[in-house]
Computed example of a mutant assay.
Amino acid sequence: MIVVTGATGNIGRSLVDHLLAEGAAVRALTRDPERAGLPAEAETVRADLTDPASLGPALHGADALFLNLAAGGGDAARTVVDAAVKAGVRRIVLNSSIAVSEGPQDADNFLARMHGAVEDAVRASGLEWTFVRGGAYAANALQWAEEIREGGVVRDPHPGAATSPVHEDDLAAVAGAALLDTTGAHAGQAYVVTGPASLTREDQVATIGRVIGRPTRVETIPEEQAAEERATPGVPKEVLLQLFRLFATAVGTTAPVTDTVERVTGRPARTFEQWVEGHAADFR
């Protein structure tokens, strides 16, 4: 049995589909099974990762666990690790971040600190582990969907910031390979997973316009203004400001590109354009 946290998120949904296609038994965790919309073949279970009492039943009988911080945050993730040990889970595949370098610079990067702390907890658990250190998600472009639909103008503080956007299906495929591993080849590996090309945020907006057949452009605005406009209860202004400061350091650079997807799955990483083609309806 493989337990998937964050099962209704972009990576989680793709991972559930991938594991089921490989014939695995899957238990998908969600706060609201009735609204999850997951395949009937998956055992969809109500679980709140911030509630330790719900974790024992959710992990009972599981051999492997996909752990995603997006499902509850760093504190909840560490609680899940403890519960996994108690439940007899053998393997954890952690959805981590490319920000983690295991060097002194991690102390100055809030994403590295957050994910690195959970990596440390997984290592200390004594369980078999694999880290999937994903680069910038292609799906982050969905934050621009409303602006593109309404007028084709994306307001952004750092349009020249470069990332190598990675498709959620590729992250799921790498995680799936580690979860299903029968040889031990993926044990103890920290995989850095990126898309196949370095693109600026302006490049991404232009790609969206080209795919949907409508003109798109970026209007540069101050960080403070962007953070105020995009802040939500789940992503407060201060977190956005920290993220924008990281983007500022990526202006004028070339983002790292790895061949991890091809090495692990046997096929090339999907391009950002392919991602947009699959999500074009969101921008029209």
Rank of each mutant, 00 (worst) to 15 (best):
Q105N: 12
N95E: 04
E147H: 01
P165N: 03
E147I: 00
E119K: 01
E102H: 14
D108M: 10
L111N: 12
A112I: 00
A117T: 14
V154Y: 09
T130Q: 01
P159I: 07
D108T: 10
A161V: 03
E102V: 06
Q143W: 14
V122G: 07
E119G: 01
A139N: 14
A99P: 03
Q143Y: 13
L111Q: 13
L111I: 12
E128N: 05
A162T: 14
S96V: 02
G126A: 05
S101Q: 12
H115K: 10
I98K: 05
V100A: 04
G160P: 04
D120I: 06
A162Q: 15
A161P: 04
N109D: 15
V132G: 03
D156M: 15
I98M: 15
A121H: 13
A139W: 12
D106G: 06
E102G: 12
A145L: 06
P157G: 10
L127C: 05
D108V: 04
E119C: 09
R133S: 03
N95W: 02
G116P: 00
E150N: 12
I98V: 10
A112V: 01
P159D: 12
P165V: 11
A141I: 10
E102R: 13
S125I: 02
P104F: 02
H158S: 08
S97N: 11
A162Y: 08
V166L: 11
R133I: 04
Q143K: 13
P104S: 11
A138D: 04
G160M: 08
L127E: 09
A136Q: 12
G134A: 15
I98F: 14
D106K: 02
G134P: 00
D120H: 12
A138C: 03
S97M: 04
A112W: 07
R123E: 12
S125G: 03
T163A: 13
A99Q: 11
